[in-house]
Write a protein that binds this DNA or RNA. Structure first.
Lengths: 248, 248
DNA sequence: CGAGTTGTTGACTCAGGTCAAACAAGGTGG
DNA sequence: CCACCTTGTTTGACCTGAGTCAACAACTCG
């Protein structure tokens, strides 16, 4: 993983993060200035690189600028369970502001760009700028809500619905971050990753995706996926976005 | 659900809560005094009563004094998925300090006693007493860690391991709260509830419990369960408590 | 006592896992 | 430019863990 000190540029590495915080709480210009003034470095990672490993003690906090990431845990038999996906603007380890040791892995699932900020600076920001503290709180609580929905997804829905639900969530979150509508979005997941996120095997994921394609809901183009019938897809998933708490 | 204003008594309704906060952060006497001074009412609930309903907008925050509670969500087919269990001292809806609308239900699973505190007072406590704020943060983040573990549990472990893991977690959390060791603990779950928490049917839970009993790990006495071989049980569950972040 | 819960067991079914083999598409180094 | 490797997709045949259905037993409490 290549890392270098960021140069002065016309686009701040905190642009996506500020946009996200603004969606979570009414941050003002002083808040924004405080974020932009954070000490930091910009790093790059290649698909499959680990950003945080279970059991380590992170002393920097990272946020995604570009690309996608996933949190995962390993089962006894070596099976990986992905517990969430992340998009640009997401803070990937807000939990280490208050917990010492990582209880799961964070990996990028595509080539990605990240900002790293010393944990202490991030913690100071949260306390000295109460509105930012509130945004952090809301972010962490929404993450928890998403985990709860995943327990339901994996525990109670059948394979096809489960896959569709997970994809719906990803698309809606991307759209809420202004990163493209359902029909425009190319989903960046391998079938293996979809399986690891839904508790299914990649073989079965493949079969279910074929059925979804045969039903005219999605189109598979080589390695990537597109939704062609968003309403139908959403209905097939039984998706209700309330748990994402998008309205502030 | 019967509710009344608490009388002056020798035991504060906040005793368990203060003990829990103390395990999460180094709260001092002024912090404790601030908790004890919170406006509140004490309420009672009977097994299966709802404390919070999905979609509602709670304006009071509640903590368990005595008894057990569970968070749950409903699937399309009417199936219930329990996403966590709670023990005395737990705050049941810290998320509504910062999120308006409930995204899941909270139910007691036994007769229980609770303290209700106005949300605004709780929020003020978190900001005016930074150490308590930190305790709240750690509590919320540990909850999230538990949800992640549950995604793994439901997604990747087989039925017997899954049940054992869920029970291990409950026992370890109880023990950490000083509520009894593994061998002393009578587990308060119906097989239906164990099934709802693990994504299994109560019929299959019954079969797995029989196997665990035949293996000499547990004993079933009428409707309740006891662990007789904690080490063996823990091994059968592949349980590692790291994700509970018990060491402060 | 009677009614609603829970627990127990057996017979049968099926969604999803397992195993195995081909195939496709980049990427890389000679 | 080709040979080769890696990573991902696809399909088929077969198997099994967990669900479903149904009946009954045991317990609790109003």
């Amino acid at each position: 993983m290549d890392t270098h000190i960021s140069m002065i540029s016309d686009v701040s590495p905190f642009r996506q993060l500020v946009a996200k915080l603004r969606r979570l709480a009414p941050i003002d210009e002083a808040d924004e200035a405080a974020v932009l003034a954070l000490p930091h470095r910009v790093g790059r990672a290649r698909a499959r690189d680990y950003l945080i490993r279970e059991g380590s003690k992170p002393h920097e906090c990272c946020a995604l600028i570009d690309g996608y990431a996933a949190r995962s845990k390993l089962g006894v038999n070596g099976g990986r369970q992905i517990v969430s996906f992340h998009i640009p603007g997401d803070i990937l380890d807000i939990q280490h502001l208050f917990l010492e040791r990582a209880d799961h892995n964070v990996q990028v699932i595509s080539d990605a760009t990240l900002v790293w900020v010393p944990m202490a600076a991030m913690r100071a920001l949260a306390t000295q700028r109460p509105t930012i503290g509130t945004a952090f709180w809301r972010d962490a609580l929404i993450d928890a809500s998403i985990f709860r929905e995943w327990v339901l997804n994996v525990g109670r829905r059948d394979a096809k619905t489960r896959i569709a639900h997970m994809l719906c969530e990803f698309i809606v979150r991307r759209a809420a971050a202004g990163l493209g509508t359902a029909e425009q979005t190319q989903l960046p997941f391998s079938q293996e990753e979809i399986g690891d996120a839904t508790g299914l095997t990649s073989v079965h994921v493949n079969r279910m995706l074929r059925e979804l394609a045969e039903a005219g809901l999605i189109v598979r183009k080589g390695r990537s996926l597109e939704i062609v019938d968003w309403d139908g897809f959403r209905r097939a998933a039984g998706f209700d976005a309330a748990y994402l708490h998008l309205a502030a």
